[in-house]
Amino acid sequence: MTIQQVLFIVIALAVLGAAIFVVTTRNLFRAALMMIAAFFGIAGLFVLLDAGLFAVAQVLIYIGAISILVIFAVMLTRGMQGMVPRNSQATAAAVTVAVVFAVLLLLFGPLRLTLDLARWPVISLFAANVSPRDVGGIEWTPPGQAIPAVPDTYIADFGRSLVDLNQYLLPFLLIAFLVDVVLAGAIFIARQRRPAEIVEDRQRQAEEETEEAEAMRRAGVLPGAASLPEGAVASASDH
């Protein structure tokens, strides 16, 4: 056994154990902490795969940002933590997941089905004369061949490919736009609305409800546009 194999097995067992703890524990805060442990293990897997850049990104983004966000949400929704961890569909979910895992094991596991796509009726029309090397214009490493080392400049290549018009510039820009919109939306959704705003909303709803209610409220408590907040609060307490 090579040292990498030992490391892989230890890290994989740690990741899976932590993940199982995350989905079964009753205490949400502990679940968040174990999720951080699982993320660390996954960063270790990335190191084993010679993708040090992604190990660092994993620690910075998942552990540094997403976990903190989750922990904040756990703390902001206190009182929701002691409840039963499973919902009424848990048994069905477990069966579904077992089936999915069995299928995935059949596809990828040690006893995997060897799918000779070139022999399948419809797919053979497309796959008959295609070698893996032709797919996507990428130099695939065929099975059994020695895997080349990662080039020293892989981080620079990766960075250049993100701003190269012929490679990933368009998805990169799209995803930057997506993040912009998403962050603005998140702030809009989660912001604490001022009482006056909530009151205005309720007022607008009430106005739409019936003509009589509108008439009554106008006659009663909305003296002028200048004193809108006080008038709005008063109308809400009437409500």
Binding site: M83, P85, N87, A90
Partner: peptide, 9 residues
């Protein structure tokens, strides 16, 4: 995702 009773989980 399928079986937890808490949206954060």
């Amino acid at each position: 995702t399928l079986a937890r009773k808490n949206a954060i989980a």
